[in-house]
Write a protein that binds this DNA or RNA. Structure first.
Lengths: 131, 131
DNA sequence: GATCTAATTTAGGTATACCTAAATTTTTAA
DNA sequence: TTAAAAATTTAGGTATACCTAAATTAGATC
């Protein structure tokens, strides 16, 4: 299976923090990402070195401000993309999955244009799907 | 720098074959991808083992039918995505670059919906940009 | 046709994200 | 409070896409 990126780790931690409130545990992250606990420990150390999380062995991990900003940016992109895909008739599950991938690879500019476009469509026909 | 995927190798070979007609050389692929020639040689052997290319040492490489199908599919996705992004006001360069990334991560279903959507917009206002 | 040059491959090595097994720490329960 | 169970980390190893340097092969020039 494909290797997980730092962004995927950050997203997993972000969601666990939201659901559980507070810190994310090694085991939860491992389960979320489908990666073994030792690999998680290793990666958490790396993310800490990069200033993305605060990690205390045996106690859990939480996002730093920098990590939080990245997670929130990804979260917004995700929501926008999933919403757009559904608007043009993509199934909710597929829209969700595609958003999950594409949020990591799309530029700020294109995100902004999709956002404007959705807004424009909402203004024209209120609430109706585009298609 | 990020590691190149098999799909990126296939695309590079595809474009070189088109431009040069016939086979792609190790050197051309290396220059296209920004990867050293020895790494290219290594990867070509792997792609051959996977049935994606025909590779003859010192003579060059060309896509197998399987490789060709993948390249053409990526090429179509790329064109559709770049066209869509430009339609909503993304700059040509950015549209191009984003398409280059996203073509690898978007589902068949979403591609189909974007295609239909573009078609519908063309039918309504002929030739005008969407925004 | 021999030699010189350029392209390619071989050889050997690095970094990194993963893994399993074993050791340790923390938590739970008797 | 201590023993058992669960979670986590440490130790050690693998696979792979990359690299540089050296060897080889192919093509050009004299």
């Amino acid at each position: 299976m494909r290797r997980k990126t730092a962004e995927e780790y950050i997203e997993a931690i972000f969601r666990i923090q939201l659901n559980e409130g507070g810190k994310a545990s090694t085991g939860m992250i491992a389960a979320t990402l489908g990666v073994s606990p030792p690999s998680i420990t290793e990666m958490l150390k790396k993310l800490e070195r990069e200033g993305l999380v605060f990690y205390e062995p045996h106690a859990g991990v939480r996002l730093s401000q920098k990590g939080q900003r990245i997670a929130e940016r990804l979260s917004m992109r995700h929501a926008l993309l999933a919403s757009f895909f559904q608007s043009i008739g993509v199934s909710p599950e597929r829209a969700e999955r595609d958003a999950c991938q594409i949020e990591h690879h799309i530029s700020e500019e294109t995100i902004a244009r999709i956002d404007e476009f959705m807004q424009k469509c909402r203004d024209e026909k209120k609430g109706e799907p585009f298609v």
